[in-house]
Write a protein that binds this DNA or RNA. Sequence first.
DNA 1: GCAGCTGGAGAACGTGCGTTCTCCAGCTGA
DNA 2: TCAGCTGGAGAACGCACGTTCTCCAGCTGC
Lengths: 185, 185
Amino acid sequence: MDSAVAREQALDAAEKLFYGRGIQSVGMDDVRGTSGVSLKRLYQLFPAKEQLVEAYLERRDERWRERLAAHVEAHGDPRGRLLAVFDWLEQWFGEDDFRGCAWINAYGELGATSARVTTQVDAHKRAFRDYLEGLVADAGLPGALAGQLYLLAEGAMVTAGITRATEPARQAREAARVLVEAAAG
Amino acid sequence: MDSAVAREQALDAAEKLFYGRGIQSVGMDDVRGTSGVSLKRLYQLFPAKEQLVEAYLERRDERWRERLAAHVEAHGDPRGRLLAVFDWLEQWFGEDDFRGCAWINAYGELGATSARVTTQVDAHKRAFRDYLEGLVADAGLPGALAGQLYLLAEGAMVTAGITRATEPARQAREAARVLVEAAAG
DNA sequence: GCAGCTGGAGAACGTGCGTTCTCCAGCTGA
DNA sequence: TCAGCTGGAGAACGCACGTTCTCCAGCTGC
């Protein structure tokens, strides 16, 4: 079996299991069972579980931001793109396997003990925030607005994760709309 | 030693350790060492670690909400009380041992595996939200505002926990001010 | 003083799991 | 055909930790 294929299969299984059941409650043997990649191969690809977790977060980050950007870019006007972020959140929250924000969860589990995880979480959150800043700038709105929208989005993710409801996305969107209008003067 | 005293000492140690290092990375032996309460006594007071965790979250919830309320109630006018919530968050974020929201962290760690933890997190978040709803009602503002302020507060907690900065509280406060003014029409 | 109870210290037990090792089936090249 | 390599299955190892057990010092009531 090709190494690259095994790697993808391992990461597919890791993502499904880590995201769905939490990182610490999933053993390397579970990853082997779900992926069909032997333990020997797993340890060739990832020298320790921590690196597998790191790679899982990294690959998910790329895909998550691509999905968000694809949805947002479909909207023509700059101000509509800002609100489209919250529409996408609502869509995401409604997915069957939604269990909150993978990075917030990972931080709660391992932030205190794994520097690699902390780094991934920081990088992901900073990238999301930078993206919002870009959207705000494109709309010709003041930079301070980006931080406010970011907090709304984070609050919605946490709350949707705990309550398993999509409603927080709509509440956040409505608040965002008010903030955008106020900022536009 | 009195049973009630031993219980308090155990909970003091549990809170310090669980909050500071995460729940899963603290062993019952660590709790014994820090509290000075023997393992035998610990297991008489709490039949299993899960119950100790539950009691930790429950007691912290009472204290956390008391501290918040004490700070907020010091402000005379209803609208000022709403913004005082965010002032208190800033103060909390700035404490030396601040490591994010204990319930969000606990949910990330154990939400997928412990029903007792999930119940505590739900109860705490609902109580905080109810409290905000009361403040919004007292200020004669529309109920929908409460959910928005709640999301801002949650976003600030998560972000302050990850970045170890107090700034999110001020950003959230500023956004809250705009939303309150818009809602007051 | 002495039987009997209480509670502490810490050893012991069992399990889960990250990581490594052993063994072997099946392929490759001469 | 046969030595040699590859990779898989799964046993084995070591450790951490939740939980329980053993032993004993110190106290109580007669």
